[in-house]
Design a protein around this nucleic acid. Structure first.
Lengths: 154, 154
DNA sequence: TCAAGATAGTTGGAAACTGAGACGATTTGT
DNA sequence: ACAAATCGTCTCAGTTTCCAACTATCTTGA
């Protein structure tokens, strides 16, 4: 008698596609919230980066949020026109401009972030607490060193 | 003596931003693999959907992979020109075209998927097995009903 | 039955985004 | 002091995205 071991293929779907779909749906759901608080997506992303405390130059900001520096010009232009950020010459390097959020920028960002946080908490409420915590921790871990290794070793 | 309870704000970063960055980096890392197997990103996504077994019409395909139907025309045009899929009139509805992968399309897709699977497995190897399994299961769960609820209830 | 409306695929064009190149003003290295 | 590199900006071409039409076909309701 022969024993046949049937190796069931783990029909996992592509991780990239899965993450992409989730991110796309979340962004689509959050865009109306942002606009209700008077912010576009890029403005929110920039303000989020600025909320980390440091006062970066325009180029550092572009790298931090991963957009082209030529695009950052237009983003900051718009935000400055709306009074969300201010450009200030860097005293240590007169080529560079230091970007800082205004009081209004901070205010709108806090409102928008709270709304987004509520939506995401609601979205995540589907999962039991321990699984949710494990997943968030795993995602955070992956977005660190493993992600960096991806981009340098093609 | 007074006891001060310090509520440490869980400084979680935005889930959408986190997922977006991960997806973007993964896609960027996988694009060279795809092109090495003679596939573009859209061709791979379409072939992946076709591999589910059903033979969908062009419109059903567009909805399944979430692109505009007008863009699907160009995608299928290119794939047909490369001999990756075939257009066949739907016998039940002469307006519709049924899209089917060719042998060559299936072959290239299998090769590309294997390469992608290897890269993703390597990427996920950073996590301990149980955490990885929990995370993947959680992501899969979220991409089902919770995601659908997001898009209809803004 | 048959006329009106809806639908599948296609085409074309407008608007937004992306990415590369160049340039002036400035800094850095030698 | 001088060459090379860098920061912010501008411009321009190539793409993608979205919307409005159009043809051919299907479906529905009087």
């Amino acid at each position: 008698m022969t024993t046949i071991t049937c190796m069931v293929e783990e029909e996992r779907q592509d991780l990239a596609a899965l993450l992409h779909r989730l991110a796309k749906a979340l962004v689509a759901a959050e865009l109306p919230l942002l606009e209700r608080h008077g912010l576009g997506m890029w403005a929110y992303v920039v303000l989020t980066e600025l909320s980390r405390g440091a006062a970066p130059t325009q180029l550092a900001l572009a790298k931090a949020v991963d957009v082209d520096k030529t695009k950052m010009v237009a983003i900051i232009d718009g935000m400055e026109a709306e009074g969300l950020v201010s450009r200030r010459p860097d005293p240590d390097d007169r080529r560079a401009r230091i970007i800082e959020p205004t009081a209004e920028g901070r205010k709108r960002w806090r409102g928008a972030r709270a709304a987004i946080r509520r939506l995401e908490d609601d979205f995540l409420a589907e999962l039991p607490p321990t699984r949710r915590a494990t997943m968030l921790a795993a995602l955070r871990d992956l977005s660190g060193e493993p992600l960096a290794r991806l981009t340098v070793t093609p």
